[in-house]
């Protein structure tokens, strides 16, 4: 019963979030496709003129990194203040609170999935078959699932904490901004001077983005590091879930 309500509510709120965004737009759901298209055009034209980093097809490199990054940053940024905004839902009944941040993550994941699908079509049209091998697709899928897990785990922690300390929202925004430049998204890992590279090893996103960019740039990370990153990501979700469950009963007292 409880389990059912959790899933049903999660999906209903996710759907609500997706629908609400385009509700009064004349073009309606077309925006789901137009948005990422414009994004990619801007990335492709503007960024490619400024940076190159000696990568052939640099615009493709950008798409591969920026689309998932946009999902990751938007999901966490939007999920963090959400419980405070949705206080009227929380006052209504004793439903599982985790559906609030998780539905935000899922709705952004939906938009990301659409844009990723469009990117795949684009790659087919361009004849970029190296992205569409079984191995490349497998790495993409793995990276995307881990990214979803990571965003969910972090959102559970930040959204719960933000109920008690509203500063968290601002801290998250700042951290996300720094994190963007600290992750090889618009530049390849090889652009980092080798004596600094170890510091970048602390970032679990390094593994995920190098999995995504593999067909274009080869990053040779030690296998043990990759495993540690995956472990950190999985632990974030588990600990985030436990932490959220512990804090959730006290939300109403602070809203």
């Amino acid at each position: 019963m409880r389990h059912n309500q959790f899933i049903d509510l999660l999906l209903a709120l996710t759907e609500k979030e997706i629908k609400a965004r385009y509700k009064h737009a004349v073009l309606g759901f077309l925006w789901i496709f137009i948005n990422p298209l414009v994004q990619m055009l801007v990335m492709g034209f503007v960024f490619s003129l400024i940076f190159k980093f000696g990568i052939k097809d640099y615009y493709l490199f950008l798409f591969l990194g920026l689309l998932p990054w946009n999902f990751f940053s938007l999901a966490i940024n939007k999920a963090t203040p959400r419980i405070v905004w949705d206080r009227s839902l929380i006052q209504k009944s004793n439903f599982p609170r985790a559906v609030i941040p998780l539905s935000m993550v899922l709705s952004h994941f939906f938009h990301f999935a659409v844009s990723w699908g469009m990117l795949m079509i684009f790659l087919i049209l361009m004849g970029q078959w190296q992205f569409l091998t079984l191995k490349a697709l497998g790495f993409q899928l793995l990276a995307i699932i881990l990214l979803l897990i990571f965003a969910s785990g972090l959102s559970l922690i930040t959204s719960a904490y933000n109920v008690f300390y509203r500063d968290i929202n601002f801290i998250v925004q700042a951290v996300i901004l720094i994190w963007f430049y600290a992750t090889p998204i618009i530049y390849p890992f090889s652009a980092i001077p080798s004596n600094y590279q170890t510091i970048f090893y602390l970032n679990p996103l390094l593994t995920l983005f190098s999995l995504l960019q593999k067909p274009l740039v080869e990053v040779n990370l030690p296998l043990s590091l990759v495993l540690i990153h995956v472990l950190i990501i999985l632990l974030t979700l588990i600990l985030g879930w436990i932490f959220f469950r512990k804090k959730a009963p006290y939300f109403t007292d602070w809203l």
């Binding site: 209903a12 609400a20 509700k23 009227s88 009944s93 439903f95």
Partner: peptide, 23 residues
């Protein structure tokens, strides 16, 4: 409590029903 101004009556019934624990 729990009503979403942007959504229709039907959509609100659906979400609020779930909030109240209905299947």
């Amino acid at each position: 409590a729990g009503f979403e101004p942007e959504l229709t009556g039907e959509e609100n019934i659906y979400i609020n029903g779930l909030l109240l624990g209905m299947a």
